[in-house]
């Protein structure tokens, strides 16, 4: 049943389910057993989340039949180059070699300092030491600096989605340019693109945005489904975003761009972030709008689909592709 009144987010439920699954491996004390059953009965989604948590552990057991070492070795087909390097470092540490190897400084399991980046057209997911997840969009870079009391992230460039693990005592702070976004446990994106103001989009929970260098600018609290724009020399502005639009704005996680009545000029600009192949639009077509779901690093495919459906001409030249009105044939 979908329960629509005040409720926990699916992620919070998964988190709780994981906690229970982590404990139920041992025999629960009677009072805990009771609390567990109350929690299960409170919402059918709890049952589903707990079933999945147990399934994850069961999958671990199944894979473990191959021996613990098979799970400790670096995987045979890593997803990304830089992750592979990280995996190797961590893998060798686990094998009993020097722990403080190279740039990966592991003070304790919960302190962490590392950088992650993506190339143009690449998308990457990273699990941080506290269980928070970061999804990096194309051409983006973050520095992670975890201390005992703060989880600090510096967004150097690009865009990232943060799914923050809840921890009241250790705020999660993302800095982008002169703007700071502070969260406790929530899900939001921060975008820092050249010649554009910092943009923050909140998907779940609440975040607080402030500019430490501008003391007179008071902090702004941002609720779920709201976007904030922080231009360098104007106050932070906020506006609500429809839930549907939020999921469209996050289509990049799937390697997609979702457009709903977006002008061709705007669409071309968005594609430019994901590929070196540019799309140029003839001036008379710039305001023509398109709707649809496209592969973000395939600008040619997009241009071809637009050309076919709008009956336009598509030229391929050295720098990219160009869309214009079809020439009248003699």
């Amino acid at each position: 049943m979908m329960i629509m009144n005040t409720r926990h987010s699916p992620r919070e439920i998964d988190q709780r389910a994981a906690e229970w699954a982590a404990r139920c491996h041992d025999v629960l004390m009677p009072q805990d057993q009771c609390a567990f059953e109350v929690w299960l009965k409170a919402d059918p989604r709890h049952v589903g989340a707990y079933a999945k948590a147990e399934a994850v552990l069961a999958q671990l057991d199944r894979a473990g039949a191959a021996g613990a070492d098979a799970l400790r070795l670096p995987p045979p087909f890593p997803r990304q180059e830089s992750l592979k390097r990280r995996t190797m470092l961590v893998g060798s540490a686990a094998a009993g070699l020097a722990v403080a190897a190279g740039g990966a400084t592991w003070l304790t399991g919960l302190l962490q300092q590392e950088s992650y980046s993506t190339r143009i057209g690449e998308i990457k997911e990273v699990v941080l030491a506290d269980g928070s997840m970061v999804t990096l969009n194309t051409d983006s870079r973050i520095d992670v600096h975890y201390t005992k009391y703060r989880r600090k992230i510096h967004l150097i460039q690009g865009e990232a989605l943060f799914d923050v693990a809840k921890n009241q005592k250790r705020p999660f702070i993302v800095t982008a340019g002169d703007t700071q976004v502070r969260a406790v446990g929530t899900s939001f994106t921060v975008r820092l693109l050249p010649q554009q103001p910092v943009q923050v989009l909140v998907r779940e929970g609440v975040v607080e945005i402030k500019r430490p260098q501008v003391p007179q600018a008071s902090p702004v609290r941002l609720a779920a489904n709201t976007v904030a724009i922080a231009p360098p020399d104007a106050p932070i502005s906020t506006e609500p975003v429809a839930r549907l639009q939020v999921s469209r704005d996050l289509a990049w996680r799937e390697g997609r761009l979702a457009f709903d009545n977006v002008s061709l000029a705007d669409a071309a600009r968005q594609f430019a972030r994901y590929s070196a192949i540019g799309i140029s639009i003839s001036p008379d077509l710039e305001n023509q709008t398109v709707t649809g779901l496209f592969v973000s690093n395939d600008p040619v495919g997009f241009a071809r689909a637009v050309a076919i459906s709008l009956n336009l001409q598509l030229e391929v030249n050295s720098g990219g592709v160009r869309l214009s009105r079809e020439q009248v044939r003699r």
Partner: peptide
């Protein structure tokens, strides 16, 4: 393939967390 996938996903976790999962569940 399931084993490879589990190994791959485990590799994404922080080292200490992965080690705890392996020690508790697999060992």
């Amino acid at each position: 393939e399931d084993i490879a996938e589990v190994a791959q996903l485990l590799a994404l976790l922080p080292e200490r967390t992965r080690e705890v999962l392996i020690m508790r569940r697999v060992e």
